[in-house]
Amino acid sequence: MNAVRRGLGNGLVQVFLVVIGLVWLTPLAGLFVSSLRSSEDTAEGGWWTALASPGQLSFDNYSALLENAGITQAFFNTVLISVPATLLVVLIAALAGYAFAWLDFPGREPLFLLVVALLVVPIQIGLLPVAKLFGQLGLFGTIPGVVLFHVAYGLPFAIFLLRNYFAEIPKEMLEAARMDGGSEWRIFVQLVIPVGRPAIASLAIFQFLWVWNDLLVALLFADSSSQPLTVALQSQVRQFGSNIDVLAPGAFLSLIVPLVVFFAFQRHFVQGVMAGSVK
């Protein structure tokens, strides 16, 4: 009796989870199917009607998108912003993380507590002052400006993560390397970085996605020639409805890279997102 009830319960659980899974998949599937339809078909009926007549579907919207100079430029800008912003955060935070974990300098403890406090600072509060500062430095509206802002606001979490990870390196190992006469730089490059690889990978993935997906920062700091894909698409959203044939493939283009990263590095991705959720 109990076993029957449990079996029945399990069946219900399976059905429930399948329904939830479908609900979760539908919006993304809808975007993808929409991105394959012409604007005429979209005006005539919802994307689900295309499932009955798959002849409607084609990659024409995508080829049109690739010929759209504004969009391709924006895509490259996204890469030009995300890659340096990720590398710089990893490099600068690894250096600082090592210093905070193993090197002695005045003010180390209070400075690190400050970093911990900065973990949750909302980026909104930095927009206006940094915009003024960048204006004076000639960085406003440029890719380096966007990158620098992302690096600065990515640092507290990055330093926190790497410092805590590096602090777990056995002391004897570092002592041994120092005994061997290695300079701190050599120890950093040859020992700390390789040992810290898992944490660095999680950090890099998290930071990359954070910057790739950012709208707010680029909306303010990038001009029309340096704007990433998110900003270019955002300006299209105003005419929403008439331009699904641009918006849907554009949105899909912007999310395909994160999705590939997600499926390629599931474990690091989940860890990075979990760890970085404070932001």
């Binding site: 919006p27 975007l31 997906n213 709208l215 918006l247 849907a248 912007s254 994160p258 999705l259 997600f262």
Partner: peptide, 11 residues
Amino acid sequence: MAVSFLAAGII
């Protein structure tokens, strides 16, 4: 979680 808020917004 991998998808940008912008893409999610459009979706």
